[in-house]
């Protein structure tokens, strides 16, 4: 049976979150203490109904633990060049196995993100260090975005995402 609700992401959003954007995720421990981690790549399923972020497990231990407990996640994507920022939240986040090609995806991501920042005057080696992840530490978290927001600074910040925003 076909799902009557269209996916939150349109094609353009999917291209944006898979581009050279900064990716950070937040979770929540019971009791209200948040955890956070930086991701080093992202892929979107063919039907655009799920987002998978790739991240180093060791520095993300707290977030991974929270995700295992309650599945709640918020992931923010921001393009430094123009500050365009999107946030997606879901309640079914789970640790999933890596797919073939994920390591290559991470390499391409680091290249794209560091390249964009170098154009803005940041040090490439610095950014690559910040994103470095040992191959055996790479982990994937998949979730179905149930809400989405534009967080580009300005009067529209915090508004629910519309197509093309």
């Amino acid at each position: 049976m076909a799902d009557p609700v269209p996916p939150i992401l349109d094609d353009e959003h999917a291209a944006f979150v898979c581009g050279g954007v900064s990716i950070s995720a937040a979770s929540c421990r019971s009791g209200g203490l948040p955890n956070m981690a930086r991701a080093t790549g992202c892929r979107v399923s063919a039907d655009r109904r799920s987002i998978t972020i790739l991240l180093a497990a060791t520095p993300s231990a707290g977030l991974i633990d929270d995700v295992r407990r309650n599945g709640a996640i918020a992931v923010v994507f921001s393009l430094p060049a123009n500050h365009r920022t999107l946030q997606f939240k879901g309640n079914d986040a789970r640790i999933v196995p890596l797919e073939a090609g994920d390591q290559a995806l991470v390499s391409r991501y680091v290249q794209a993100f560091a390249g964009g920042l170098e154009l803005l005057g940041y040090s490439g080696p610095l950014i690559r260090s910040m994103l470095a992840c040992p191959a055996d530490d790479l982990t994937a978290i998949c979730f179905t975005p149930s809400t989405a927001f534009s967080q580009t600074p300005g009067p529209e910040a915090g508004n629910a995402l519309r197509s093309g925003s």
Binding site: A25, C28, P34, A72, A74, V76, S78, K89, Y122
Partner: peptide, 19 residues
């Protein structure tokens, strides 16, 4: 110089991330 990020949780336990 490298923008920081802040994670918070709503009253319902929904996390949020911001620059």
């Amino acid at each position: 110089v490298i923008p920081g990020t802040i994670a918070t949780c709503g009253a319902d336990g929904t996390p949020n991330m911001a620059y």
